[in-house]
């Protein structure tokens, strides 16, 4: 349905549930995908599904210098970089009263600051080609709040603010910047929930189930397409009706 032939996309956190689904979706639509993540075995496994039009760039997102080089490396292997998906996310949960400075900083660094650094580094090429798509993966909790996650929620809310401001800055250059805010999705991150937590959550979701990573990926794909050219600075909520904004 959406054709990304000739585009190349950098996807962070590509080994996660949502990241891998996004990579599959963009690749299936014709894009060359560059998979970034920390676990190189998992990256290789994912890339083996794709055959051609796929490259791997391992990167630790709390390494500022490595992050800043990632877009350049992408351009080196693909010749261009049209689409950036800031998907990587980490959690270090705890009540605010017990949260260490280190857990705060780490989560903000990887989720928010790395997003800023990557956005900054990809803009040059996108501005020159007068076309670009940036999709930042936020979270429903970035809008609703969530106990035990002041660090994660602050970072995810920050992503939405960053997205809006950057969207205005570059709107005149054919670049759109949007965020997607998934609700509870069946991934490694929600696997940690126990059965009663899970039941409790599902009861609150009008659709009556957790989402599949593919259901997030299809929203990301839309925001990467030509068809979404008039949408920028927005947050697309993919949460089964859990929260409506």
């Amino acid at each position: 349905m959406f054709d990304l032939t000739g585009r190349s996309a950098l996807i962070t956190g590509a080994t996660g549930g949502i990241g891998a689904a996004v990579a599959r979706s963009l690749h299936h639509s014709g894009a060359t995908v560059v998979l970034s993540g920390r676990r190189s075995a998992a990256l290789s496994e994912l890339s083996s599904e794709f055959g051609d039009r796929c490259h791997i760039l391992s990167c630790d997102l709390d390494d500022a210098e490595a992050v800043a080089h990632l877009p350049k490396q992408t351009e080196d292997v693909c010749g261009r970089l049209d689409i950036l998906i800031n998907n990587a996310g980490v959690t270090r949960d705890g009540l605010c009263m017990r949260m260490s400075e280190e857990d705060w900083s780490y989560v903000v660094e990887v989720n928010l600051t790395a997003t800023f650094r990557l956005c900054k580094a990809v803009l040059r090429g996108m501005m020159k080609s007068r076309w670009g798509r940036i999709v930042n993966v936020s979270s429903v909790v970035g809008v609703s709040g969530n106990p035990g996650q002041v660090n994660y929620v602050a970072a995810k809310a920050g992503i939405i603010g960053l997205t809006k401001s950057l969207a205005i800055e570059v709107a005149g250059r054919g670049i759109t910047v949007n965020s997607v805010a998934p609700g509870f999705i069946e991934t490694g991150m929600t696997e940690k929930l126990n059965e009663s937590q899970r039941l409790n959550i599902v009861q609150r979701i009008p659709v009556g189930r957790m989402g599949a990573p593919e259901e997030v990926a299809s929203s990301v794909l839309f925001l990467c397409s030509n068809e979404s050219s008039y949408i920028t600075g927005s947050t697309l909520h993919v949460n089964g009706g859990l929260a409506m904004y």
Partner: peptide, 9 residues
Amino acid sequence: SLDTVELVM
């Protein structure tokens, strides 16, 4: 201001 960035580029 964005034009000035592009000029420098």
